[in-house]
Computed example of a mutant assay.
Amino acid sequence: MIADPDCPFCAIVQRDDPDVREVYRDDQVVAFFPTEPAVLGHILIVPRTHVPFIWELRDEDAEHIGLLISRMSRVIVETIGAEGLNVIQSNGEVATQSVNHVHAHLVPRWTNDAIGRIWPPETHYSEHAKDEAWDALRGACRELRL
């Protein structure tokens, strides 16, 4: 596994942080409570290989993380009785990524929890701007071969 000696998540992957509350580990990922959870039951899922951004993940690692997100979400809801759940995955400082190691947050949600809304109440994009973004992305997606 490739590791970054300055990455706190790589230290967790290598079991170098005795304070970590790990909930799951396999040959590709580790899942654990963050030091400062947003709510009880908040879990981070990280690949064991140091990869800064989601677009740099190998397909097999992305598939494994996606499957684990689905399965672990079910475990969270069934085990602690969450009413809902946010899956948050940020990339880059502008997107609030604070550790440059791919990670997904599974955040259990309850009515009136401390988190509140995560989306703006409304946006004001012109139809022209939406069409331009749609056209660019639709064209680029035609090149994808899955």
Score class of each variant (00 low, 15 high):
1 M>V: 14
2 I>S: 10
4 D>L: 06
4 D>G: 07
8 P>N: 09
8 P>C: 09
9 F>A: 10
10 C>E: 03
13 V>M: 06
13 V>T: 07
13 V>Q: 06
14 Q>E: 15
15 R>K: 15
17 D>G: 01
19 D>L: 12
20 V>I: 13
20 V>K: 10
22 E>H: 06
23 V>I: 13
25 R>G: 07
29 V>H: 05
29 V>W: 04
30 V>H: 02
34 P>I: 00
34 P>R: 09
38 A>L: 11
41 G>C: 05
41 G>W: 02
43 I>V: 14
44 L>G: 08
45 I>A: 02
45 I>M: 05
47 P>D: 12
50 H>Q: 12
51 V>T: 15
55 W>I: 11
57 L>C: 08
58 R>Q: 14
60 E>V: 11
61 D>I: 15
62 A>I: 00
67 L>M: 13
74 R>N: 06
74 R>E: 10
78 E>F: 00
79 T>R: 07
79 T>D: 10
80 I>Q: 03
83 E>L: 01
86 N>K: 06
88 I>M: 09
89 Q>M: 14
89 Q>R: 02
96 T>G: 04
97 Q>L: 08
100 N>L: 15
102 V>W: 01
106 L>M: 01
107 V>R: 02
108 P>C: 00
112 N>W: 02
117 R>G: 14
117 R>F: 13
117 R>H: 13
118 I>N: 12
120 P>W: 08
121 P>M: 13
122 E>A: 15
123 T>F: 13
126 S>C: 13
128 H>M: 12
131 D>W: 01
135 D>S: 06
137 L>E: 07
137 L>C: 05
140 A>F: 12
143 E>Y: 07
143 E>T: 09
